[in-house]
Design a protein around this nucleic acid. Structure first.
Lengths: 193, 193
DNA sequence: TCAGTTTGTGTCAGTGACTGACACAGTGTC
DNA sequence: GACACTGTGTCAGTCACTGACACAAACTGA
């Protein structure tokens, strides 16, 4: 596979979806605009949605990889937070791509759906890595919950950055989201009605 | 629309997917097994996935509705938790359906994807209701984060119930998940590396 | 240098999800 | 008895996605 073609397809897909919408953008048209066949398009991407999500596809696995590299002495929370620095770096390194992906995600439910599914896989991968540290089974509910919390805070951070139009603050926004989560859950007894 | 037909279609879809899998189950076949046309199937459900998810479709809106009914004096956390009692009741009232939906979700990524999308809409609806209480805009990141936290704990609770084969504990499991979340975020300073 | 393999692509035929338009029957209403 | 409303079938069509096959170019080793 030639990475140049892949990038061209992604760019063409984004452009077209921006102009005429996701539904009106056919896979064949994207392919044709790059000088390639529809069949070839589907050799590069499993679905039409993936063409757009491709730029951030590797992010999840990268975070999981970093999580494995964190010293065993760190608490789960600190190791996870440190691993997400990879995501922060990635976003601050190329804010334009991330902003574009987020914009398309907001406007197109189909895209958002696929993105959620992708994130779900990320959480699974993270939970597996975290499980190793804790000596828990690969997909234990506990590590899944912890990774889910982190991912939720990350999403909140991204949203804040997006709305502020400033992705350089991603790290700070992530910490703020975590703090906000802590404060929310802090308030005395939830139980009892 | 006749609700009897809708229920039959859902039942037929679940049975077939259980036996031969999601991909091998065509919409036409589901429809035919109920004595109806494929076209009619798609008048009842927007997508094949929705036929299976239908039993829990109304849950999100119900929770949001209850959230609106909670006294204004309650903190967001308490009001949200109280609103989720609706979900707890629904699950304990019909554990078999929920267990089936969860089992299919686990085995079929396509179903899981749609379910995540559904949940995302629930969070949006909840965040809107919560925003009203707090005087925040409809989809403010803050209320979204809080509702997301609750939904995450709810998912964890359901998973625990499912694995234990006992949905009567849903309420307790939800509280346990919230407590676990609190403990995770509690540990001193996350920031700084 | 040449046979053999690997890689990227086109072509073609096919399946299945989903949609719009139209016709038609049954049921209720005034 | 004219009229609207509801639920359904039929038909034609679009488009995502897949498998099988053929073909050319680039690479590989003797």
């Amino acid at each position: 596979m030639r990475e140049a073609i892949r990038a061209e397809l992604t760019a063409a897909a984004m452009r077209s979806i921006d102009e005429v919408g996701f539904a009106a953008t056919t896979a064949g048209a994207i392919a044709a605009s790059v000088g390639v066949t529809e069949r070839t398009f589907f050799r590069y991407f499993p679905t039409k949605e993936d063409a757009v999500l491709q730029p951030i596809e590797a992010l999840g696995p990268s975070i999981a990889e970093e999580l494995r590299r964190r010293p065993a002495a760190e608490t789960p929370a600190r190791a996870l937070r440190a691993a997400f620095a990879v995501a922060v770096d990635s976003v601050t390194a190329d804010p334009v791509t991330m902003a574009t992906v987020m914009r398309l995600n907001r406007n197109e439910p189909a895209l958002r759906g696929r993105h959620l599914q992708q994130q779900d896989l990320w959480v699974t991968a993270l939970a597996a890595a975290l499980g190793e540290r804790l000596g828990l089974p690969a997909d234990s509910p506990r590590s899944r919950l912890q990774c889910g919390l982190m991912m939720l805070a990350w999403e909140k951070a991204l949203t804040s950055c997006y709305e502020a139009g400033d992705f350089t603050r991603a790290g700070d926004e992530l910490d703020a989201a975590l703090e906000e989560s802590r404060a929310f859950l802090q308030v005395a007894p939830l139980t009892g009605r």
